[in-house]
Amino acid sequence: MPRYGMVIDTKRCVGCADCVVACKTENNVPEGYCRDWIVQDVQGDYPDLYMEIRSERCNHCENAPCVRCCPTGASHIVEGGIVLVDHDLCTGCKACIAACPYDARYVHPEGYVDKCTFCIHRVREGKDPACVEVCPTKCMHFGDLDDPRSEVSKLLKSRPHHALIPEAGTEPKIFYLY
């Protein structure tokens, strides 16, 4: 069983938001909503500045509080550790939204809660997620974190990296290379 994750090279990423736009068309995300977004994180004072640019989305947490708190089982984990929402089971109680420290979820206009699916429809066909495929700087990598030969594993092994809000204990599976 694979354990899917993403490794994003912040050195390459220019924050162009192509990943955001591609997700919208690939997944027909309604106007006004998004499953991924870009953060510019600037530290320092002029002229000694440092900026990290991150493409962020659901972290498909290993220890997913959104799944734990869901009263109906709508939020669940499938193959490869991908966290999904079953629209038919969702009541729109929003407990999972409150539970997600990354604010990765939203209420779809049709009433159910929605978020990044890691493009499971593509992954099942052996393709990369849409955002990964489109990224003009090729800074995103998707693959099996448990497979030592996968690109993601190799990158994590060879380069320093960090994940978002590890203190929250969710064990996120998206990693950012410095």
Partner: peptide, 22 residues
């Protein structure tokens, strides 16, 4: 549905920019 770059195009290498994608 969507627009995706043509992999054989030396001017996009199969990847459009966000404006092209949009």
């Amino acid at each position: 549905w969507k627009i995706i770059g043509n992999k054989n195009d030396p001017n996009s290498n199969g990847r459009l920019c966000p404006r092209g994608t949009g």
